[in-house]
Design a protein around this nucleic acid. Structure first.
Length: 273
DNA sequence: GTGACCACCTGGCCGC
DNA sequence: TGCGGCCAGGTGGTCA
């Protein structure tokens, strides 16, 4: 499932492939992917827009066009692929952006969870979905005062709160487990019970883990791979996630799996009291 | 305002 | 071997 490092990897890969190309046509076979605006307007407005840059905010890919930003969230299994114009459409390829060099940028999403928005450039940061996002993990403003303020009213388990994109954006289920393991915090601990050292550790390890994951090209787990079939290597670095019944790399206890807020959560009961 | 629950989806896995 | 049911999970919507 693409989290921040995977989206960053996709962004960098796509920049090599589609920058400065013009979208001359579009073919959408699963309209629900288009969240905003109405699909007829989307179809009309995106034509003849050039892809001038690709950015990222949290888990959102931002294609900077002439007049608009095309925002794309990959959710669980979304990926982008380049094909030649007219190549047979493969299963699960729901959107084809036909480019001016006789290639097509295709959005493929097995589970159809991904969503796209087309927003006027001047509006993009002050309307949904970007205006609801919290700080980037590498933002200098992500400090103990900020996080303490955000956590003090939250009684929910810290694992659940780490997944709240309005506080820190970009953390998903895999990296939340890893951050809490390194921070030696039990995922069930109520957020408002964390002390300053624990909050500091979360800030420190969030940045450290995500930076390392970006360096490794993200994590390839289950069905996720980035565009063009690129596999991330960070899964080799995972300390607890997906390691149920295996030995803790720190204390040799058994890693256990529980549900927190409905999410599969892995942790070491001895290291994370 | 907060928190719990559900829907969206499909493929993989497990038990029978 | 084939079938049915459960599970995976990011996000938004609804309801208490």
């Amino acid at each position: 499932m693409p989290e921040l490092p995977e989206v960053e990897t996709v962004k960098n890969k796509l920049k090599d492939l589609v920058l400065n190309k013009k979208i001359v046509d579009i073919d959408i076979t699963y309209p629900n992917i288009i969240e905003y605006p109405d699909i007829k307007i989307f179809n009309k407005e995106i034509k003849n827009q050039r892809i001038n840059d690709i950015k990222r905010r949290g888990k959102w890919l931002m294609f900077e066009l002439d007049d608009y930003y095309l925002l794309s969230h990959l959710r669980m299994e979304g990926k982008y692929i380049i094909r030649n114009k007219g190549d047979e459409r493969e299963k699960h390829e729901h959107v084809a952006f036909i480019l001016d060099d006789n290639t097509e940028l295709r959005y493929k999403d097995t589970r159809k969870f991904g969503r796209m928005h087309l927003l006027k450039k001047e509006d993009v940061f002050n309307q949904k979905p970007l205006n609801e996002l919290g700080l980037e993990p590498f933002d200098d403003n992500l400090n103990i005062e900020y996080l303490k303020q955000k956590l003090k009213l939250k009684k929910l388990p810290i694992k659940t709160v780490l997944l709240d994109q309005s506080i820190i954006t970009g953390i998903g289920n895999i990296y939340a487990d890893e951050i809490l393991f390194l921070s030696k915090i039990n995922p069930l601990k109520p957020s408002n019970k964390l002390n300053s050292d624990e909050i500091n550790n979360i800030i420190k390890y969030t940045s450290q883990i995500l930076k390392e994951a970006i360096k490794q090209g993200g994590t390839t787990i289950r069905s996720y791979e980035s565009s063009e079939g690129v596999h991330g290597r960070f899964q080799q670095n995972l300390l607890v996630h997906n390691r149920e019944n295996m030995e803790c790399l720190n204390c040799k206890s058994k890693i256990i799996k529980i549900k927190v807020g409905g999410r599969g959560t892995y942790y070491c009961p001895k290291c994370q009291k």
